[in-house]
Amino acid sequence: MSAVRVDADKGGGVAVVTLDRPHRLNAIDLDMARELTEVWRALRFDDSVRAVVLTGSGERAFCTGIDRDVVVPQPSSPYTQDDPLLTVGPKANDLWKPVIAAVRGMACGGAFYLLGECEFVVADPTAVFFDPHTTYGMVSAYESMLMAARMPYGEVARMALMGTAERISARRAHEIGLVSEVTEDGGALAGAVRCASVIAGYPTEGVQGTVRALWAAREAAPAQAFAQAAPLIALGSLPVERQAELFRNRDRTEPRIR
């Protein structure tokens, strides 16, 4: 069963890509990671699709990052890191068609690999954003680096360092620029599709050139930062077994939403 669903309106030029593992809060396992790579690369060649909306299935989550059951063997060198999420985003797969994220429910951790490569984010009032890495003894590297291009430094730092104790509400995410629009309840997908439909109606070359120009303006800093990510993760993260222990024994107290 496919973990990623693609629904394309050939006439309107908009494709909706849906992360479809609601029973796992749309967490990304290795199959979903591979499917996302295949989807983005296939959309490069589909000229009937001129804009894309990315969303998650169900009401509880957009995406909760990498599936906790995924085991990725790592090399012994601290200077290399095998991260299956590095190739799940549209830009990583050379797709320069605009991608708009529609967020309902939780978006956390590895979800930022996807949000960081979307042009903008539309959310409904249930959306919350947080980064659990530090709580479980992990370094938030790629996630924080990508979000540093979307949010003020202090907001990224607070989100990354506060871990699971706090969540950023849709309202606050809009105030700090992470979210471009907060819709009515349940309206994020429709809002994102509305924007995508407008963009899909414009001349393709100008739209894709603008997306590429925008990305060029911001990719230099992430590229330099990414070069340091692997050793930071390898040297700063607890052993996987200890991370799992912290996750099993995690505090079940409701997080503060700000």
Rank of each mutant, 00 (worst) to 15 (best):
residue 228 Q to A: 11
residue 229 A to Q: 09
residue 225 A to P: 00
residue 231 P to L: 13
residue 26 N to L: 13
residue 46 D to R: 15
residue 29 D to S: 04
residue 96 W to N: 08
residue 23 H to F: 09
residue 205 E to C: 01
residue 145 M to H: 07
residue 215 W to G: 00
residue 223 A to G: 03
residue 245 E to C: 05
residue 190 A to W: 04
residue 106 M to L: 14
residue 82 D to A: 12
residue 243 Q to I: 07
residue 18 T to L: 04
residue 71 V to A: 12
residue 213 A to W: 01
residue 140 S to L: 04
residue 23 H to A: 15
residue 21 R to K: 14
residue 165 A to Q: 11
residue 185 D to N: 08
residue 118 C to H: 02
residue 22 P to I: 07
residue 140 S to I: 02
residue 188 A to D: 10
residue 63 C to S: 15
residue 67 D to H: 15
residue 75 P to R: 14
residue 146 L to V: 10
residue 41 R to C: 05
residue 63 C to Y: 05
residue 27 A to K: 03
residue 111 A to V: 07
residue 121 V to Q: 02
residue 120 F to N: 05
residue 153 Y to D: 12
residue 254 E to L: 11
residue 19 L to C: 09
residue 5 R to W: 03
residue 108 C to I: 09
residue 130 F to T: 01
residue 168 I to A: 00
residue 14 V to K: 01
residue 164 T to E: 12
residue 186 G to A: 08
residue 75 P to S: 14
residue 164 T to K: 06
residue 5 R to N: 06
residue 157 A to W: 02
residue 188 A to T: 08
residue 158 R to F: 12
residue 180 S to M: 10
residue 33 A to H: 14
residue 164 T to Q: 08
residue 171 R to W: 03
residue 33 A to E: 15
residue 215 W to Q: 03
residue 32 M to A: 13
residue 105 G to W: 02
residue 38 E to S: 13
residue 218 R to Q: 15
residue 98 P to R: 03
residue 183 T to Q: 09
residue 27 A to E: 12
residue 102 A to E: 05
residue 180 S to H: 07
residue 134 T to W: 03
residue 236 G to V: 12
residue 8 A to H: 06
residue 72 V to R: 07
residue 80 T to W: 12
residue 58 G to P: 11
residue 70 V to D: 04
residue 95 L to Q: 04
residue 86 L to G: 12
residue 152 P to M: 09
residue 205 E to W: 01
residue 165 A to N: 07
residue 175 E to N: 07
residue 109 G to L: 01
residue 94 D to Q: 14
residue 86 L to D: 13
residue 129 F to C: 02
residue 230 A to T: 04
residue 245 E to K: 11
residue 42 A to V: 03
residue 93 N to Q: 14
residue 109 G to E: 02
residue 49 V to A: 10
residue 255 P to T: 05
residue 2 S to M: 14
residue 215 W to H: 07
residue 80 T to K: 12
residue 125 P to Y: 10
residue 150 R to L: 11
residue 32 M to T: 09
residue 138 M to R: 13
residue 149 A to Y: 06
residue 10 K to Q: 12
residue 3 A to M: 10
residue 70 V to G: 04
residue 200 A to E: 00
residue 80 T to C: 11
residue 205 E to K: 05
residue 254 E to F: 05
residue 90 P to I: 01
residue 247 F to N: 02
residue 175 E to I: 03
residue 222 P to S: 11
residue 128 V to K: 00
residue 103 V to L: 09
residue 234 A to F: 04
residue 56 G to E: 09
residue 235 L to A: 14
residue 92 A to C: 08
residue 104 R to W: 02
residue 129 F to Y: 11
residue 46 D to H: 10
residue 204 T to R: 11
residue 109 G to W: 00
residue 162 M to A: 14
residue 249 N to V: 03
residue 60 R to A: 15
residue 72 V to I: 14
residue 158 R to I: 02
residue 249 N to L: 14
residue 133 H to Y: 12
residue 180 S to A: 15
residue 218 R to F: 08
residue 126 T to V: 05
residue 175 E to L: 09
residue 204 T to H: 03
residue 19 L to W: 04
residue 11 G to F: 06
residue 109 G to F: 00
residue 66 I to L: 15
residue 141 A to G: 15
residue 204 T to N: 01
residue 121 V to I: 15
residue 203 P to C: 04
residue 108 C to R: 01
residue 10 K to D: 14
residue 117 E to A: 06
residue 190 A to M: 09
residue 95 L to G: 03
residue 163 G to P: 06
residue 20 D to V: 08
residue 53 V to P: 00
